[in-house]
Design a protein around this nucleic acid. Structure first.
Lengths: 143, 143
DNA sequence: TTTTTATTCACCACTTTTCCCCACCTTGCA
DNA sequence: TGCAAGGTGGGGAAAAGTGGTGAATAAAAA
């Protein structure tokens, strides 16, 4: 599915090109929403369907479930692609992710994450330092 | 499977030839990603499939799972071979591994490692010096 | 209700990058 | 010494990404 990372520019109208390799797996319908760690999540329509359902079924009594639902569900917006394969990022989402001009678009198997370049660099440089420990952790999972 | 060591050159377009002996085991699809100790890992599509799936299925709600996914999945790129048996190394991976011009390509049974020549030399000379201690360490693993 | 202004959307055009193909060079082997 | 296979380099066509213009729609003001 979605793997790899791409750097694209966003224009004044809030348009970003989704990498062609990702577009192949999306049939013209997708949903974008607030993500975790300061990025945006982009899902295919099918995946979104499942997610929304399972989030909706979380117990209302649990406060963390309510918060999570508000973040993901209330922050969502469905997007369409123009002829050039671009989507428009709503202003409130750009603000949420602190997106200025250069964005990093990454594939994480069944979701796409959209980052402001600075946040991404910060995030990934932190992780790369711990790569060894992460690998050892992973070996416990039988990978 | 993959064994042996080869030295190849990378051109301005980021292309490297994969040794013919390795290519025999890969049916035109492979995945390259960030490795450990500053090298890159190249896996066959089948091997990768298993790894990616188990990472992709980790819960999104767990922060360490998100970090793993970003390192491994977003750091990956699927590669195809051109008629000459070359693959293109994405810029971000070249940067990660500090790859300049001469690269060392080594086979490690079920994965291939790609090193910048300097890093390789450094790595190997270190290993040779500490071979005894490393062997001691390994004995704990029952080897 | 009409006019003006602003915003959105579809389309077009340019630039850059990627991909594909061909040709050459080197090495190893017959 | 000739041939074949593997590796390296480059040029041209196609695709991907970026920026902009104008029409259509909606909103605001007169």
């Amino acid at each position: 599915m979605f793997i790899g990372q791409y750097e694209h520019a966003i224009d004044e109208k809030g348009r970003v090109a989704v990498p062609a390799k990702f577009r192949k797996f999306i049939k013209n319908e997708a949903v974008i929403t607030k993500g975790l760690d300061g990025c945006l999540f982009l899902f295919t329509a099918e995946k979104w369907q499942k997610m929304a359902q399972s989030i909706g079924q979380l117990p209302v009594s649990k406060s963390s479930a309510r918060l999570y639902a508000r973040l993901i569900l209330a922050g969502a917006s469905d997007v369409e692609f123009d002829k050039q394969g671009r989507i428009i990022l709503p202003t409130y989402l750009r603000k949420y992710a602190g997106i200025k001009r250069q964005v990093i678009i990454t594939g994480l198997y069944d979701r796409i994450e959209i980052w402001d370049k600075k946040s991404w660099v910060k995030q990934i440089s932190q992780v790369e330092g711990e790569a060894g420990e992460i690998a050892e952790d992973l070996s416990e999972l039988g990978i």
